[in-house]
């Protein structure tokens, strides 16, 4: 069966077409395209602007996705869309488009949980069967493990997501948001070498990032006011690259730690990293060191799949549809808060 998936919970709108084969072979990605709303440096993105962006792009992307996939309306089995979680207005724009296509083409709708989309796509692409999942993006930070038909949340960020922390710091430094603020922080961090003392906030299985953001913002302001600052330990001049480096080393260590705790608790040594922040090479490297230390391994996807995309929605939606799930029109709402563990993962036992 073939499904069309639409994703737009944040500033990326993605459309994908996936094909599931009857004989249990790996799924085929027929098309996966996306467009990102990039805000000017120093600014975040407003929901209404993102929603407008999505409305402008959705039809074009759907047409293109179907052309690249080489499918017709008749081939499509169902329309999958992101029910949540995410930003309200952007989610709505995409839901409206999905409903429209459903009515227009007379196809069933499947509402998909964004996080579950990431997880299922990650499992499919990497082949990791039952890993502990670290889902990290601008809007989410969760450590998840599957048990008894639920993706259970073992640990999470208690205040803001790690991606949000990094994005906001990019704004503080007025770094370009193109292609993504986190990507530019990563490049700058590669040039840093001084590790500054930043608050490390892991509480049991959870962590928090608001404190470290406050501190790093203050340090950035101090550096701007006094560019001749030196690190008390090494005597070296401090640069913005060092700030980025210190921030990454600290927040990623926190993420690896809570992931390791979950792995020990659950008795697993496989990790799958999904979500936009999962593209970060340093995070992948650190997670790999931890996993190998335990005799395990890390699975990660590239930017086609770790950044928000439509194909993951199509894939997760189609799996659910094949297991008998669908979303009647009256229930095809979207919701800003939609916890990963609310979904009944009926397609696994």
């Amino acid at each position: 069966m073939i499904a069309l998936g639409l994703e737009g919970s944040a500033n990326k709108i993605g459309v994908g077409v996936i094909s599931h084969h009857a004989n249990g072979k790996a799924a085929s990605v027929l098309s996966n395209i996306r467009h990102t709303y990039v805000s000017p440096p120093g600014e975040g993105f407003l929901p209404k602007d993102v929603a407008k962006h999505h409305r402008i792009w959705v039809v074009t992307l759907v047409k293109e996705a179907m052309a690249v996939a080489g499918v017709t309306i008749a081939d499509i089995g169902c329309i999958c869309y992101t029910k949540g979680p995410g930003m309200g207005a952007p989610l709505q724009s995409v839901a409206v488009a999905a409903r429209m296509l459903s009515l227009l083409w007379d196809k069933d709708l499947v509402g998909v949980n964004h996080c579950v989309g990431h997880i299922e796509m990650g499992r499919e692409i990497t082949g990791a069967h039952n890993p502990v999942v670290l889902y990290v993006s601008g809007g989410n930070t969760q450590v998840i493990a599957y048990a008894e038909q639920r993706y259970r949340i073992f640990g999470e960020a208690l205040d803001i997501a790690v991606g949000n922390c990094l994005d906001r710091f990019a704004r503080t430094l007025q770094i370009s948001n193109d292609p993504a603020p986190g990507y530019n922080i990563e490049q700058l961090a590669k040039k840093g070498k001084v590790l500054l003392d930043l608050p490390y906030a892991v509480k049991g299985m959870d962590c928090s990032f608001a404190g470290i953001l406050t501190t790093i913002d203050i340090l950035a302001a101090e550096l701007k006011a006094n560019p001749e600052q030196r690190d008390p330990l090494s005597g070296e001049l401090i640069t913005t690259a060092d700030l980025c480096f210190s921030l990454q080393e600290t927040v990623y260590a926190m993420l690896v730690e809570i992931t390791e705790r979950a792995m020990a608790h659950v008795g697993s040594n496989q990790v799958l990293i999904v979500g936009g922040v999962g593209c970060n090479e340093r995070l992948q490297e650190m997670m790999d060191l931890m996993a190998r230390d335990r005799g395990g391994s890390v699975f990660a996807t590239d930017e086609r799949y770790c950044i928000d995309n439509g194909i993951m929605i199509a894939h997760a939606g189609l799996i659910a549809y094949e297991a008998g799930f669908k979303t009647p029109l009256e229930e095809s709402t979207c919701t800003q808060r939609f916890r990963t563990d609310e979904v009944l993962v009926s397609w696994r036992d």
Partner: peptide, 12 residues
Amino acid sequence: KPYRHPTLDTRL
């Protein structure tokens, strides 16, 4: 912990 920066590791 090999994944942590040595300074951070010692401090923690």
